[in-house]
């Protein structure tokens, strides 16, 4: 286990080489409910995604935006900035690319109940675009039943 400054707890099982062909768990990160730590978390995951063979473009833009939004949602709406709660990030390698999961300790939500912010009635709302950006920028998106965990898959080019 490696402890990274700023209270991020990064665990790397070490059984899967991101540059190799194996599939499986690459890394877990435990993140405190602080928005200031989002960028550092994204940087760590981005380095591993590059090592897994994702394109620079997919990592620099798609992953960065989607993961930043997912983390901000988890911290603000899921954990409600509660310092006693954590967000758990998991990075897995599989045949087509990588899957990044973000799970908070909140009560969850139903993503089907989030209105499309592109609709004219909602276009001038100041919030509600994070989920749309995630949907648009990852190759596959899934939620757990409770709605407090999102799994984003990005494929290798």
């Amino acid at each position: 286990m490696v402890i990274v400054p700023l209270r991020l707890c990064v665990r790397r099982p070490g059984r899967v080489n991101p540059r190799g062909p194996e599939e499986g768990l690459l890394m877990t990160i435990t993140v405190p409910s602080e928005l200031e730590i989002v960028e550092q978390t994204v940087d760590i995951v981005a380095r591993y995604c590059l090592a897994c063979g994702l394109s620079v473009r997919a990592v620099r833009f798609n992953l960065r935006v989607a993961l930043s939004e997912a983390l901000a949602n988890a911290i603000v709406y899921g954990n409600r900035l509660d310092p006693g709660k954590r967000v758990h990030v998991t990075l897995r390698r599989h045949g087509e690319g990588v899957a990044v999961s973000v799970q908070d300790q909140g009560s969850g939500f139903d993503p089907r109940c989030i209105p499309d912010p592109r609709h004219p009635d909602y276009l001038e709302r100041s919030e509600g675009r994070g989920l749309l950006l995630i949907k648009e920028l990852v190759d596959h998106l899934a939620f757990n039943e409770k709605g407090n965990s999102v799994c984003m898959t990005l494929r290798r080019a």
Binding site: V65, E124, R125, E127, G128, R129, G130, L132
Partner: peptide
């Protein structure tokens, strides 16, 4: 370098 969804939201807000 980057604008997140809340940054987009504040642009909408100041525009109004």
């Amino acid at each position: 370098e980057y604008i997140d969804s809340s940054g987009l939201g504040v642009l909408v807000s100041v525009s109004k």
